[in-house]
Simulated scan of single mutants.
Amino acid sequence: MSDKTYNVLFLCTGNSARSIMAEAILNVLGQGRFKAYSAGSHPSGQVQPMARELAEAIGYDASQVRSKNWDEFAVKGAPEMDIVITVCDNAAGEACPVWLGHPALAHWGVPDPVAAVGDEGDRRRAYTAAFATLRRRIELLLSLPLQSLDRLASQAKLGEIGRVGAE
């Protein structure tokens, strides 16, 4: 068993909901085996209240969560990423950021709950659905034997996980 801590960056466009929730879920469920981060290519500058609420509900200290630009992870001294996962929904025509470098890359498209229309109940259901999809995929990520997979095999397995719940 490896003692390696895997750095994972969840990327989205606005870094206000999906990538924030994924960061929280992996940091809670990963229990020190993973260190998750999130960022956006065009950050909104705010964390959506429902995303913060769901993160806190699983025990994540959301006081440090903020919407930030992915440029923070491309500078000298930034944590080196082992895995970069985009969570934008290009099925809805949303442009996903592209990460350069050598981490394993995957796309886990999730409909944007920020775009949900309707009353608060409808919006809450959209956030809860996105959170549940991300949690299921992260549980599958946690079951991968990453220490015994090379980057390309990891990338292939992560890609398969990205299709879970998208059927």
Rank of each mutant, 00 (worst) to 15 (best):
A55T: 00
L142N: 10
L29M: 15
A39I: 10
A116L: 12
Y60Q: 14
S67Q: 07
A91V: 02
A153N: 08
A51F: 03
E80Y: 11
E160N: 04
R125E: 15
K76F: 07
G30H: 14
A115M: 15
R137E: 12
G121C: 01
F131Y: 06
G118D: 07
A126R: 03
L152W: 13
E167S: 07
S41A: 03
D61V: 12
I25E: 00
I25F: 03
A156T: 10
R135K: 15
Y127D: 03
Q155Y: 01
E23I: 10
W108M: 14
G118Q: 02
G93H: 10
A62F: 04
F131C: 06
M50D: 09
D89P: 08
G165F: 12
P79G: 04
L142S: 04
L141W: 11
E167L: 07
I25T: 06
F131H: 03
G30K: 05
S63P: 03
A132G: 13
N69H: 11
G59S: 07
S67I: 13
P111R: 06
D122M: 04
A95S: 05
E120W: 15
L29H: 04
N90L: 15
P111F: 10
A57K: 14
T133S: 12
R33V: 08
A129D: 13
A92I: 08
A129K: 09
K76M: 08
I161M: 01
P103M: 03
D61S: 00
A78W: 09
R137S: 11
D71L: 09
E139H: 09
A116K: 00
A24T: 00
A104N: 04
A74M: 10
K68C: 06
F131P: 00
D119K: 14
P43G: 09
E80F: 10
A106Q: 05
R163H: 02
A92V: 04
S148K: 12
S67G: 09
P111A: 06
S154E: 11
Y60P: 03
Y37E: 01
A130L: 12
M81Y: 12
S148V: 11
L29T: 00
L146G: 01
A74Q: 12
G101C: 13
G159L: 15
T86K: 13
A24C: 05
A57P: 01
D150C: 01
V84R: 04
R151H: 02
V164T: 10
R163M: 13
A24Y: 09
V110H: 04
F34A: 00
I25W: 12
E53F: 13
W99E: 02
G77Q: 01
Q31A: 08
G159R: 06
A126T: 06
F131I: 01
G77T: 10
G118L: 05
R124W: 11
L152E: 15
R163Y: 11
S67E: 04
G165S: 01
Q64P: 02
Q31V: 13
G109R: 06
I85L: 05
Q46Y: 15
L140S: 11
S67W: 12
A95N: 02
S67Y: 09
R163L: 14
G77N: 08
A116P: 07
L141K: 05
A104R: 02
G109Y: 12
A78L: 04
L29W: 11
